[in-house]
């Protein structure tokens, strides 16, 4: 406390005032979505304006508070719309992507971390460079390969394969960093006791790397759950939509079902928002550390 006085801090009251206003503006779009979701209507207006609105009416029209609370949008987005199927698609795809991506990444990361072999540096660099390939450049060939050659358009398998492999480089770099910190002595002791390489990997490295594996898996899950443009490009059957494509379907083009969109958005976002808040510190350190090294 003594130190705070010494430093002639700003008075806190104006800071709080500014922060409250700014935070309200920041949260406003979120409140807006909640209002529409619980309004029970499909309109994107927060309130209906009369013919000649007074100041109060106008103020009412921007207040993010529903005129009448109703769960109708949540009930009918599941009952009348194929939203449950879309959520199911997204969940299945995200889980399968995570399993595939982490399995591929952990073995590769282990090899990159523990073995010295020709092509090691080139392999790591190629993973890094692949992160610079622009999405649209990949989109056209992927569309041709997945839809026209492999015939996997509008299937979950196609998306899982694409998401799974594209998540590999990021996961490999994350996991390799962690594997590097596991002391080699543990393995050397195991080798002396006659353990095979496979045994060392499964019995020593994987259990020790559980926290890193969990975080990598969560990132994999989150990016697949949130992915929009590949899914929108590779899938054109309505029953095979993922949740993001489905949400766009509610309000894209001439469709104006804002109530369904808002209710669906809340359902889709809640798990990832919490996941994100939990993972955010790893993300920041991973991203900035990676790029300082260049």
């Amino acid at each position: 406390m003594a130190r705070a006085r010494n430093r002639e801090e700003f008075p806190h009251a104006p800071l709080h005032a500014g922060l409250v206003v700014f935070t309200f503006l920041t949260v406003y779009p979120v409140l807006w979505v909640f209002t529409i979701a619980f309004s029970g209507k499909q309109s994107l207006a927060l309130a209906d304006l009369p013919e000649s609105p007074t100041l109060w009416d106008r103020l009412r029209a921007i207040t993010p508070w529903p005129e009448r609370w109703s769960m109708a949008n949540f009930a009918s987005v599941f009952a009348d719309q194929p939203f449950l199927a879309w959520l199911g698609n997204s969940a299945l795809i995200a889980v399968a992507t995570t399993i595939l991506g982490v399995c591929l990444a952990m073995t590769a990361a282990y090899a990159f971390s523990r073995f010295r072999f020709p092509g090691q540096r080139a392999g790591m660099m190629s993973f890094l460079v692949s992160q610079m390939f622009p999405g649209t450049l990949m989109l056209i060939p992927l569309y041709i390969i997945v839809v026209q050659w492999l015939g996997l358009g509008s299937t979950r398998t196609g998306l899982v394969l694409v998401y799974g492999t594209t998540s590999v480089p990021f996961s490999v770099w994350m996991l390799k960093g962690y594997f590097d910190t596991i002391p080699k002595e543990l393995e050397e002791a195991a080798v002396i006791e006659g353990a095979s390489a496979g045994k060392i990997f499964w019995r020593i490295i994987i259990p020790l790397a559980k926290p890193a594996l969990a975080i990598t898996a969560l990132f994999s899950f989150m990016s697949s759950w949130n992915e929009f443009i590949l899914a929108a490009t590779l899938i054109d059957k309505e029953e095979m939509y993922t949740a993001p494509v489905g949400l766009r379907f509610f309000v894209g083009g001439f469709s104006q079902q804002w109530g369904y969109f808002a209710a669906g958005s809340i359902i889709v976002s809640i798990p990832v928002v919490f996941l994100f808040l939990y993972l955010q510190k790893y993300l920041v350190s991973g991203l900035t550390a990676g790029s300082v090294k260049g």
Partner: peptide, 8 residues
């Protein structure tokens, strides 16, 4: 805002 999926 960062946590919300950006398409939403």
């Amino acid at each position: 805002p960062w946590a919300t999926p950006n398409y939403i």
